[in-house]
């Protein structure tokens, strides 16, 4: 029997008195490309932080790759929604990506960025088709280029699961399509969990969609129906149908 790589059982979480997640169950199988959708403040980012081990659930259990989220964290690649660094930081793209190897058994926590780290960074940049950016300072990249670099930083540690929080929220549509094509290719060897609020767009790429609005409303492989969308977003959304090819 194939074990799920991420198993979430009856997990609840609240910030102070605000209940954000209410008894959520979710399993992600190896090799899946799962889209996690839902309205803003629906708990998507919170669920990611729980999976990454940055937060602890008040009740319920989370297992990632058969371990606790804290233990499994080094095996995950994470791409944040916004760059969480100042744009004027004096650092080149190659170094940014190489820092993704921090904490890898081979590379450790201390010391300097070594030759192996740089070589691996180049390889990860090549994988996201951004090798030509390696020498550029991070402050002189476009939004789409930054997202590629962040993706390379997540890939450089050779993760088992790739977790992305709205990776295309701040870039134009053409760059968005390119990123998703890239993810589809990476999905051939990686499990991918992707958060988005753009339900129509991602359903073209992902294998399965889970809808989260405090509790998990659906969890299925079928194309989304408008009734479900209305339950999810409270009926104020215009639904434009599309088909899977």
């Amino acid at each position: 029997m194939i074990e799920p790589v991420i198993q979430i059982e009856s997990v609840s979480f609240s910030y102070g008195e605000t209940l954000v997640l209410d008894r959520v169950d979710l399993s992600v199988m190896p090799g899946e490309f799962l889209g996690l959708v839902g309205p803003n403040a629906g708990g998507k980012s919170t669920l990611l932080k729980l999976i990454l081990g940055l937060l602890k659930p008040q009740s319920g259990h989370i297992q990632v790759l058969g371990q606790t989220p804290q233990q499994a964290a080094p095996l995950l690649g994470y791409v944040p929604q916004f760059p969480t660094f100042p744009r004027d930081f004096p650092i080149r793209v190659e170094e940014v990506v190489a820092l993704g190897r921090l904490g890898k058994a081979a590379s450790g926590l201390f010391g300097w960025i070594g030759r192996v780290d740089r070589a691996m960074a180049r390889r990860a940049l090549a994988e996201v088709e951004a090798e030509d950016l390696a020498e550029r300072p991070i402050g002189r990249l476009s939004g789409g280029q930054v997202q590629r670099v962040l993706l390379a930083r997540a890939l450089v540690s050779d993760p088992k699961i790739l977790i992305l929080d709205e990776p295309t929220a701040n870039i134009d549509q053409r760059a968005e399509g390119e990123i998703f094509d890239l993810l589809a290719r990476l999905n051939q060897r990686l499990t991918i969990l992707l958060v988005s609020h753009d339900i129509a767009f991602i359903s073209r790429y992902v294998g399965r969609v889970a809808c989260l609005n405090r509790t998990l409303l659906c969890h299925e492989t079928q194309p989304l129906e408008s009734e479900l969308i209305q339950r999810l977003y409270g009926g104020r959304v215009r639904w434009i149908g599309h088909t899977h090819d």
Partner: peptide, 22 residues
């Protein structure tokens, strides 16, 4: 000299550094 990389990681992106186990 001993901790250049962890300090760089901390200064550049503390949240990511925490995820990498720093």
């Amino acid at each position: 000299a001993a901790c250049y990389r962890p300090f760089l990681a901390l200064a550049f992106d503390a949240e990511f550094a925490r995820l990498r186990g720093l």
